[in-house]
């Protein structure tokens, strides 16, 4: 669906998408980094479970919600890649909350 034009001298960093190590140009949004890999979807909706990809890329539509560094519902288009960042597809409402003792160990 998308491809990255060959860039000049861009710094490359490492990120992890759904457990897989990837490289991305520094400074681009998480949504751009993931879209360039042509994923099937970046989230499923909490209401019907239908698949979605980013839509507006400018922080307005909240379609690009993903789990980033363990936190659900982060806007991938308004979050910028950092070395070692862990990015996951968000399924419905996202990962379960701690169900016992306030989440303490």
């Amino acid at each position: 669906m998308f491809k990255q034009l060959p860039a000049d001298e861009t710094e490359i960093i490492g990120i992890v998408f759904n457990g897989k190590a990837l490289q991305a140009p520094k400074g681009i949004s998480v949504a751009a980094a993931i879209l360039s890999r042509n994923p099937d979807h970046t989230r499923t909706t909490p209401v019907t479970g239908s698949k979605r990809l980013p839509f507006c890329m400018m922080g307005v539509c909240y379609e690009c919600l993903m789990v980033i560094d363990g936190q659900a519902n982060r806007r991938a288009c308004a979050t910028y890649v950092e070395e070692g960042m862990r990015i996951e597809t968000q399924l419905g409402v996202g990962p379960a909350l701690a169900l016992e003792g306030g989440g303490s160990e």
Binding site: M1, F2, K3, Q4, L5, A7, P25, I28, S29, A32, A33, L35, S36, N38, D40, H41, K51, R52, L53, P54, F55, C56, M57, M58, C77
Partner: peptide
């Protein structure tokens, strides 16, 4: 998935050099 706003296409182009492939 696969339907986006034109502005999104432009932002991908400007900020990341990402353009439609196919």
């Amino acid at each position: 998935p696969g339907v986006m706003q034109a502005g999104a296409g432009q932002i991908l182009f400007k900020s990341a050099g990402i353009v439609p492939d196919n």
